[in-house]
Amino acid sequence: MLLGLVSHNMFAQTTENPFYSNGKIYVVVAVISIIFTGIIIFLIRIDRKLKKTEKEINKKNQHKD
C-alpha cells in the first residue's frame, strides 16, 4: 500500500513539476547514491582494518599474561 502511495505521488510529480518532467533528476539521484555508497564502503573498510588491529593487540596482551 505504501508503495502504491509512493508511486502515485511520483506520478503526480512527473506530470506537474518541471523538476521531474524531463526525467534527468534520476541521474542526480544516481550520482548522489554512488558517492554515498562509496563513502559507506570506505567507512566499513576502516572499521574492518581497526578490528584486525584490535585483535592483534589483544592477542599480544594475552600472551603477556
Partner: peptide
C-alpha cells in the same frame, strides 16, 4: 541512503 534518494524523489515541494 533512503533519505538522500527520497528527499529528491518522494518530497513534493
Amino acid at each position: 541512503l533512503y533519505s538522500l534518494i527520497g528527499g529528491l524523489l518522494f518530497v513534493n515541494p
